[in-house]
């Protein structure tokens, strides 16, 4: 009897440090955020918590609804709809542009190309640079004035002459002409935010996939080659199914990563409203509007979204053969 008790006590003691951290800093805040989301209060003014029921949710979601009387969106500066749409677009861009690109490079490199290690090192390098720095660096690259690298490049190649008017004609949110203000328009700001993300993280996913491909048993590949499979067929029927678990991890990282991204947008543009994400919206509501209940509501929505996507991705990857982690 005593033995089992000490055994149980030991289990508890081994888990204790992790549990304290995890429950104290992750789980309790989720519950607290949920509680806050039904209240309004001001952290600066130390005001009492005022119970507001579902009002915060109503405010946020009403910004996505159409007023039946006017046929227009309810006027609301909270833009939750924009933030959600942006994060979905960013997640889609990451999954369908970034990951395939990473996969192609990983497939090529893992086939034993001269200098694969050097390529690998270089592609992975931006992962280690601070996001704040990458944001600021790209802010300078996008600078619309004389010094901006991107516009200078476009001007030097003469591309701006047809590209800028073409973009102007596509911009519907504003009546202003496009003259290279990449972060200034709704239509371009999100793309401008995606490029540095792609630049930074393509190497991250590539390295993960590379590792997976290197783990494919050699006899499997040899057998396929003896059967006369082309390189494309080997990739498609052997390698990609084999590294499915890693692809799943990559998709989860890419999607939840885009939902979470904050630092980059914050460093890249001072006014985040044109590429608003749930995280930047939350920041704004908390620290600019000083509406801590409303901001916490966005936090709750953000957490729910992240869980939802992780589950959906796990479901999408679930099939007979692959084990679900």
């Amino acid at each position: 009897m005593k033995r089992t008790f000490t055994y149980k006590l030991n289990i508890f003691l081994f888990l204790l440090p992790a549990l304290i951290l995890f429950i104290g800093i992750l789980i309790a805040p989720i519950i607290m955020s949920a509680y806050y989301s039904f209240h309004e209060f001001n952290l600066v003014a130390n005001t009492d918590m005022e119970y507001v029921g579902l009002n915060n949710y109503r405010i946020l979601f009403s910004s996505m609804l159409t007023n039946p009387n006017t046929g227009k969106l309810y006027a609301n500066s909270m833009y939750l709809g924009d933030a959600l749409a942006h994060s979905l677009i960013l997640a889609a861009l990451s999954t369908f542009i970034q990951l395939p690109l990473a996969l192609i490079i990983a497939l090529k490199l893992s086939k034993g190309i001269r200098g694969e290690r050097a390529y690998l090192s270089i592609f992975f390098m931006p992962v280690l640079i601070s996001t704040v720095i990458i944001g600021r660096l790209w802010m300078n690259i996008y600078d619309p004035g004389q010094a901006g690298l991107l516009n200078a490049g476009l001007r030097a190649l003469g591309i701006d002459k047809w590209l800028f008017p073409a973009i102007t004609s596509r911009i519907t949110s504003s009546k202003l002409p496009f003259t290279g203000q990449w972060t200034g328009f709704r239509e371009t700001a999100l793309l401008a935010a995606f490029i540095p993300i792609l630049w930074q993280y393509v190497g991250y996913h590539m390295l993960l996939m590379y590792a997976g491909i290197k783990g494919v048993p050699a006899d499997l590949l040899e057998a396929a080659q003896l059967d006369g499979c082309t390189e494309g067929q080997v990739n498609r029927f052997i390698i990609i199914p084999y590294i499915k678990p890693i692809l799943k991890v990559c998709v989860i990282f890419a999607v939840t990563g885009s939902l979470k991204s904050f630092d980059l947008i914050y460093a890249l543009m001072k006014d985040t409203s044109r590429a608003e994400l749930p995280s930047t919206l939350m920041y704004k509501l908390l620290f600019l509007h000083q509406r801590y209940g409303l901001g916490s509501t966005v936090a709750v929505i953000l957490i729910v979204l992240c869980f939802l996507f992780a589950m959906l991705i796990s479901l999408a990857f679930r099939d007979k053969g692959a084990k679900v982690a």
């Binding site: 619309p144 004035g145 009546k175 202003l176 002409p177 203000q181 200034g184």
Partner: peptide, 15 residues
């Protein structure tokens, strides 16, 4: 005034 081009269009993303 903005649409008539009386403002520097670059200003939109300048500090």
């Amino acid at each position: 005034m903005i649409i008539d081009g009386y403002f520097d269009p670059d200003g939109l993303s300048l500090d």
